[in-house]
Design a protein around this nucleic acid. Structure first.
Length: 270
DNA sequence: GGCCAGGCTGAAG
DNA sequence: CTTCAGCCTGGC
């Protein structure tokens, strides 16, 4: 099926935007990108300007992937609204095409717990190993892949098995998170109803979840676009370009979009 | 082979 | 309230 997307939409930039770790361009099929959302797998390829080929039904595109890619938000309009902020203007220009993905709560939570003090290749490797070990296997026309494990699957595994995924001291954090979710100690779906501060506080009750991880989960999984996670790259930006003053706060409900442009520019720009 | 990474925790000042 | 060592392990 061919679909039309008129707004900013760049698959490669989304893959490298740092918010997701399992999306990828298939090495054997350049231009063809794969996304995983729970038990749904999407292959998508750009055909021409604003036109993309997708391998899902129209209903799935509308009900699942349209919200996943946040297609209800006009990103080019957001970019054009930037005034009086040269750095952010350049960054948004460079990062045009990035979108905030609405990713599954549990997967995002675990992924960003894993991310601490790891580089991206190491993060990806751990997540793939976890999925292969505890996820469900799917065979598509292109590959065999595994869904991200459920909290129950994580709990049913032994400490040693999980630890073999290269998690180091984070293994205990991940088991704690799975336990709190499986025991309904934390109901990830119900957190959607909370305001930003309450959501962050609830997430931080999980071991290994501090300010940065909680903000990432809130932005990349709960769609809280008024939040802008501060990692070492963003901190470097705040220190070097803005004299220590956080430039994102003033962007209100699009602060998180600016954070993505800024992060991508810091890590992939010149 | 050494250094350090897209932080957090717990303890100490 | 703020600072800071120590943390597991894999990439480069």
């Amino acid at each position: 099926m061919i679909i039309t997307i008129k707004d900013d939409f760049d698959l490669k930039k989304i893959e490298y935007s740092g918010q997701c770790f399992r999306a990828k361009e298939l090495t054997d099929f350049p231009g063809l990108f794969r996304f995983i959302l729970d038990d749904k797998i999407l292959y998508i390829k750009k055909i021409e300007e604003n036109k993309f080929e997708v391998d899902c039904s129209e209903a799935d595109w509308t009900n699942i992937w349209t919200p996943f890619f946040d297609l209800g938000t006009n990103y080019s309009k957001i970019r054009k609204s930037i005034v009086d902020d040269p750095f952010m203007h350049n960054a948004s220009d460079f990062g045009a095409g990035i979108r905030l993905l609405a990713q599954p709560h549990f997967e995002t939570l675990i992924s960003f717990i894993i991310s601490q003090r790891k580089n991206i290749p190491a993060i990806k490797s751990s997540i793939e190993k976890l999925s292969e070990l505890l996820g469900q296997k799917y065979t598509t026309e292109y590959e065999e892949i595994y869904s991200f494990p459920t909290p129950e699957a994580v709990l049913n595994a032994s400490f040693d098995d999980i630890n073999r995924c290269g998690l180091g001291y984070r293994t205990g954090y991940i088991i704690d998170a799975a336990q709190k979710v499986a025991d309904k100690d934390i109901k990830l779906n119900e957190l959607e109803a909370l305001d930003d501060d309450e959501l962050i506080n609830q997430l931080k009750t999980i071991k290994g979840v501090g300010d940065k991880v909680a903000n990432c989960v809130a932005l990349f999984s709960y769609g809280r676009k008024s939040l802008a996670p501060v990692d070492v790259w963003i901190q470097r930006l705040i220190d070097n370009e803005y004299n220590g003053t956080n430039p994102f706060v003033k962007y209100g409900d699009i602060a998180g979009v600016m954070q993505q442009y800024a992060f991508y520019y810091m890590t992939h720009g010149k």
